[in-house]
Amino acid sequence: MPKIIDHHKRKILIAEATWKVIVEEGIENATVRKIAQTAELSTGSLRHYFSSQSELLCFSMELVSDRVIQRLESREFSEDQDPLEFVSEGVFEVLPIDKERKIEMEVWLAFSAKVLVDSTLNELSNKVYDHMHQGLKNVIHVLQLLQYAKDGLDLDLEVNRLHAIVDGMAMHHLLNPGHFTQDKMTRTLNYHLKSLCK
């Protein structure tokens, strides 16, 4: 009998090979040939799934975004849980605090740089930015709904500030992990979130 191939699993395998090449060798070396070699596929097999490098990069970045969203959506708040702890753990889903999330952030930063020179990636970049922004808006909104947040907060400005803090911390940690350690990242986020609360 011919072997049955799960095409979605194969695309995920290719996307993960793309992440590996980007993290180890940089996005400029994420060629179709190199990714196929890393995925242990022929170039022809890879092109069966992705007709261009941009299409492959888009799928790889969407997979990063989808995995973050899945983790966030699987979280449930219980009444005996500290609201501040609950929302901070949610924000940590998008920060490089472990190997998996570090890879996701490194890949995302490399992709973001590629967007500057490849306009075909703009739509996905904007889509993921909007998802991230909405997720951080939900963080502030949850604190407000639970009557944990200070009165009179400007929701839009606070979301902008939190988004900038999260992006900045991720970049500082990836570029200078010896100076801006994971512990500093954790304490900085908790300090900021506490400043929003009564």
Rank of each mutant, 00 (worst) to 15 (best):
V94E: 01
V94K: 00
S78Y: 12
R67Q: 12
V94Y: 01
R71E: 14
S74Q: 14
M61V: 14
G90P: 02
F92L: 13
S74P: 02
Q81D: 13
E79K: 13
E93H: 04
D82H: 09
S52M: 12
E79G: 04
S42D: 15
L72E: 12
Y49E: 12
C58A: 12
E76S: 11
R47L: 14
Q70R: 10
D82F: 10
E55I: 05
Q70A: 15
V68L: 12
E62P: 02
E85R: 06
E62K: 12
E100D: 12
S78F: 09
F59C: 04
E89M: 04
E76N: 09
F77H: 09
L63C: 06
R47W: 09
M61K: 02
V68E: 07
V68H: 01
E62H: 04
P83F: 06
H48M: 08
V64D: 08
L46N: 03
L63E: 05
H48N: 11
I97V: 15
P83G: 09
L56I: 11
D66E: 15
D82A: 04
V91L: 06
D82Y: 07
K99E: 14
S60Y: 00
F50H: 01
R67G: 06
E93V: 12
L95E: 02
E76T: 15
V68G: 01
P83L: 08
S45G: 13
F50M: 13
Q53R: 15
L72R: 04
P96W: 02
S42R: 00
T43R: 03
I97S: 01
D80W: 09
E73T: 07
S74T: 06
L56P: 00
